[in-house]
Write a protein that binds this DNA or RNA. Structure first.
Length: 651
DNA sequence: GTAGGGTTAG
């Protein structure tokens, strides 16, 4: 009996009627074990009308064309049907056909089926092994890739450049990674270390290990370079905030005659965003436009994020509007942008719009809208989306619970937040307790704060942030003895607070400041300028918030110390060194303190007013588009995803 | 028949 291919398969594959002349797949009662596994699925999907047709022998090229289509378009179901037909043909034990099938399953992401094909193959060659290894490597199963590479060697097969680039990618992804150097040595022995594919994988591995010099050595030794090798190096530096180096490499790539791709642009925008190099980011954007590159999702999403993180929600929105093609990440990036700027209602509107146009929100969409609600005090809306997420079949993960605790906590319902933690179906993580701790700081709840802090110390003892927050909670409540105890504990356990610094970009140079910066050549002018600003903001009602600054000094000294936080110095410096009316963006490595938040908010107001009334021309201070609506967290931080956040208070 | 580089949260 011969079997017709189901009509759906034909239309999807857009192939000729010849398909229906192919031999039938086997049924379940076949005696040959190796022929069994795809038929269950096939029989379920094949109607009785399909079970007619005449037999002509299949040819290799025809099967290859079919499998290639299934592989490229990830048509797993159709691939299974083709598989079933092959099993009935003379190619059922053919090694090349087996490898093609294995590759089809691997590329479609069905690694279990790929593995079954592998196990049932009567013969295997180095391509068989390589295909399985690359399947694991490309689908985030580095351990399996490394395991099979070991086995491949044990069985006496020699890896080629395909095998090595796959296994190096796996080694780079394996967190406990320690086999990178061994693999490099192996490549040198085989003579593959300067191959452009192997070398690109190797230099990528070194950048992920943080060994940038080794990555450069591999790059320099490549027998030839291509856009991928350049992009791997650029991305490596971009990931480690080596923005200047990434930009320098970008120019090197252009000099070398390679056209930047979306990979290059995405890396560079990401790097500029995380370090606050907005001007350079704009330059790269301009270059992209000049090159005639279309603004599509991958690079476009990163560009949107860059403008949003740099304080320009309007530019972020423009990018979203101009995207030639949007995907779920584009929508999420927009939601995140609104959330970060404190535009909760706008985020909620766009979330609904997203659903209206038929984009299914994923776990990050919900996280973004929850964050937006939390930061804007939209308690009921936030709770509604938390319930909706569960109804939509998305199982909340730890990060969602963190946001719900944050939502309840910020709104001041600390007891409900605690109850929520106690009733969660997962074990509370350090981040969840940190959210409660932070809420306790905002609402000055010392007892619950201490309770949350104890849990954090147990789960994440090395993070200095919670120690600082607990210190602040005690200090602002006047419990100086308890505060001193926290400080002592920090010293004893060797936990160190990351020093706060702020930086500002002026004429393509980045100027960085630390608190009480005494070595700066313009320190006296800076101090005078800040005094001017201080006088103006005091007129608007600024009162220094010294509630948790320095334990054993008097009020006057506390106030003085407060005036030399790095962001205030950066602002005064920027006012001195920019033309009137300029926009000033100040970036900071850690969370801005409450006092600086208030001071700069008022400074922004007074200076902008000054310009408007044309009394005195001054630079406009515009750290974010909506100061009054946002919490300190969302403004002067950078690279929020990667850097720890703690209070910028001097202990 | 097999390979390397990129995005959204906290």
């Amino acid at each position: 009996m011969a079997l017709r291919f189901p009509p759906r398969l034909l239309s999807q594959l857009k192939l000729s009627r010849r398909l229906n002349s192919l031999p039938a797949p086997v049924s379940e009662d076949s005696e040959d074990e190796s022929l069994k596994f795809p038929s269950n699925d096939l029989l379920l999907r094949t109607s009785s009308n399909d079970l007619e047709g005449s037999y002509i022998p299949a040819d290799r090229r025809f099967y290859n064309t079919l499998l290639k289509k299934c592989t490229v378009f990830k048509l797993l179901i159709q691939g299974r049907i083709v598989h079933a037909h092959i099993l009935q043909s003379i190619f059922r034990h053919d090694i090349v056909m087996g490898n093609t099938l294995l590759n089809m399953y691997a590329k479609c992401g069905s690694l279990e089926e790929a593995r079954k094909v592998f196990e049932k193959m009567p013969q295997r060659d180095f391509v068989t092994w390589t295909t399985l290894i690359s399947g694991y490597s490309q689908h985030d199963r580095p351990c399996d890739a490394l395991l099979f590479f070991n086995q491949m060697l044990r069985f006496g097969f020699s890896p080629n450049e395909f095998t090595l680039s796959s296994v190096i990618k796996a080694a780079a992804a394996e967190r406990r990674g320690c086999c990178g150097h061994q693999l490099h040595g192996f490549c040198v022995k085989c003579g593959f270390d300067s191959n452009v594919h192997v070398g690109s994988a190797l230099l990528d591995l070194y950048t992920r290990y943080g060994l940038m010099d080794d990555a450069q050595l591999v790059f320099d030794a490549l027998e030839s370079r291509n856009d991928v090798s350049w992009n791997a190096l650029i991305a490596g530096h971009a990931r480690r905030s080596g923005t200047e180096k990434a930009l320098e490499l970008f120019q090197g790539m252009l000099r070398d005659g390679f056209r930047p791709s979306h990979f290059s642009y995405a890396s560079l925008f990401g790097a500029c965003s995380s370090t606050g190099f907005l001007e350079q980011g704009k330059w790269v954007h301009a270059y992209m436009i000049k090159s005639g590159e279309k603004l599509v999702a991958f690079a476009g999403n990163t560009l949107l994020d860059m403008y949003a993180k740099s304080g320009s929600i309007h530019d972020a929105r423009k990018i979203f509007d101009r995207l030639a093609k949007r995907d779920v990440v584009s929508w999420n990036s927009l939601l995140t942008a609104y959330a970060q700027h404190g535009f909760g209602k706008e985020a909620v509107w766009w979330f609904e719009e997203m659903r209206r146009v038929g984009i299914r929100p994923n776990e990050i969409s919900f996280l973004s809208v929850l964050t937006a609600c939390s930061h804007s005090g939209l308690l009921d809306e936030g709770w509604h989306y938390y319930e909706l997420m569960k109804k939509d079949g998305i199982v909340p993960e730890a990060w969602h619970y963190v946001t719900v605790v944050d939502l309840l906590g910020r709104a001041g319902d600390l007891n409900r937040a605690l109850r929520f933690i106690e009733e969660m179906p997962i074990e509370p993580t350090a981040a969840i307790w940190k959210a409660l701790l932070n809420a306790c700081r905002m609402h000055k709840n010392t007892e619950l704060g201490a309770y949350a802090a104890e849990h954090v110390f147990e789960l994440d003892p090395d993070d200095p942030g919670p120690h600082v927050i607990l210190y602040n909670i005690y200090a602002s409540g006047g419990r100086w003895n308890d505060a001193a105890r926290v400080r002592k504990k920090m010293k004893e356990s060797g936990v160190k607070k990351e020093p706060a610094c702020s930086w500002v970009e002026i004429e393509n140079a980045i100027h960085m400041f630390v608190a009480n910066d005494e070595r700066h050549p313009q320190r006296e002018e800076i101090a005078r300028k800040w005094e001017e600003v201080l006088a103006k903001i005091k007129e608007l009602g600024y009162v220094p918030d010294t509630s948790h600054v320095i334990v054993h000094v008097d009020q006057q000294e506390r106030e003085v110390n407060l005036q030399y936080h790095s962001e205030k110095i950066a602002l005064a410096f920027a006012l001195l060194n920019t033309p009137p009316g300029s926009t000033i963006h100040i970036k900071k490595n850690i969370r801005v303190c409450g006092d600086c938040h208030t001071a700069i908010k008022l400074a922004s107001k007074t200076l902008v007013n000054t310009i408007a009334s044309n009394v005195e021309l001054e630079s406009a201070v515009l750290l974010a588009s909506s100061w009054s609506k946002i919490t300190p967290t969302s403004v002067m931080t950078y690279d929020a995803a990667k850097r720890s956040k703690l209070e910028s208070l001097t202990l």
